[in-house]
Design a protein around this nucleic acid. Sequence first.
DNA 1: GCCGTTTTCGGCCCGACTGTTTTCAGTCG
Length: 570
Amino acid sequence: MKNQDVAKIFREIADILEIKGENPFRIRAYQRAARNIEATSEDIELLVKENRLEEIPGVGSDLADKIKEIVTSGKLKFLEELKKDIPQGLVDMLNIPGIGPKTAKLLHERLGINDVIMLERMAHAGKISNLPGIKEKTVENILRGIELLKRGQGRMDLKTATDVANFFVNQLKNIKELKKIDPAGSLRRMKETVRDIDILVSSTKPEKVMDYFTKLPEVKDVLAKGPTKSSILTKDNIQVDVRVIEDASYGAALMYFTGSKEHNIKLRQLAMKKGLKLNEYGLFRDNKRIAGRTEAEMYKALGLCYIVPELREDRGEIELALEKRLPKLIELSDIKGEFHVHSNWSDGGSSIEEIVERARAMGYEYIAIADHSQGLKIAGGLDRNKLKEKRKEIDRLKKRYNDIAILYGTEVDIDSDGKLDYPDDILREMDVVIAAIHAGFKQSKEKMTNRIVKACQNRYVDIIAHLTGRLWGAREPYELDLEKVFKVCKETGTLLEINSFPQRLDLNDINCRMAKGFGVKFVINTDAHIAEQLGLIKYGISVARRGWLTREDIINTLPLDEVRKNLKRR
DNA sequence: GCCGTTTTCGGCCCGACTGTTTTCAGTCG
């Protein structure tokens, strides 16, 4: 039983309680607990064993008992009972944008609607417009909501989100009355995936901004349009929200729209304790604004040091900011090189020379060319002979460049028994060895863990790449006993990669923080397959920052001679 | 259901937009 499984059960309970019209604060308690369980870096089973569940914020004696029941028996009587009253289909209906618990309940009680399909049929047949509060427009919105749900308004990766946001920001900059503009929301917090794009604007002419925004040619559908706030859907079904605010409130609004929701709630509670009121317009004492123009001013007025967006998740950052003890997080400019780049010797698209040129342009001091190993035929893995030729090419280039070190590396495959795809005599010759799993993802947790552990124990393996194998929208992370892996990494001096590729971002933020707790060290790599993708490193940096990592945790912030001391002896 | 240098009971973040309603409930973030 994983933390996410427990969180999922609590969320389901919250949904059912909402439909039943239960006490909203009780519902929020389940949601809060779900979120904190998911965010905690400690394994829920361990917390049960050590009787430390109530250390999780939002978990009291009642929820602790429920967690124990879930972890020990695999199910929860309370939920089974709830499910008897509310059909699953009704809970699913809450996923339709525009349908909340009240509407779902109304549709169920008055018309016996039990799921999304039935709702769609009844709506088309004109049978739901007789209900109180539901007329033509509402029916239209429900049908549109169902369409959105069907098309799967999923989450997009961080790069896609960045590109869309930049596009709209640049468009809006054409408005001459526009003063400030910033993407906010989970994108500004650099969350691994983003659901919609929030953009904050300050302007003397809010209506003009709203008109211009909602009439852009890329807009397919206007979901809402008011004098200061509008939401649209792009042709790719991405929701973009723009909010206009005046300069005096810009910092407060940026803080508010950056979130997270949980971070905001805690800040408001803090403000209340000080007898202040916090909203998106500023921080107020007796209706007099005492801060609002900038975020820095807001945090200061709350008695906190500035909290960077990546940390704003209510994972302890506010408590540390009160004591002015927040860590100094790693920054892009700390990076001195990387180790995981594929060239056209295997499945990459750029020559080694092109990669080296790019790395030099980025100011790197070293770059490792790590192509796939022989077993990975589809990825053009290199056999012994090809390796020799590649080595010659690297040696030739080394003579040409004296301002950057070109390292001879590999991404060697870990087979289904945990054996490596190259023998030791080949690995010994490498400057740096990365090991990774590329097949056999469906093995048991125990087997998967043992494969990784065995690789870590190899005296030539320096780094484990993309540890959990997750690919957004394509593959779930594979089953792994992470604590065991982290322990072995620490013992064997094996480094863990933070993979910057937007579909991977693996390790994720929570696992980074957990691994750091075990004393593990990291490298941030791109897994670039063309030279240009070396620029993706910024996304890996953001994961590390969200994982509370500092420069000291990341080996490729060090100069090369120091890096060598952190690699295994050859 | 949680939580407490105001509290073990009585609070629990706050505002914009929509559609339906003549003043507001529902939904969303």
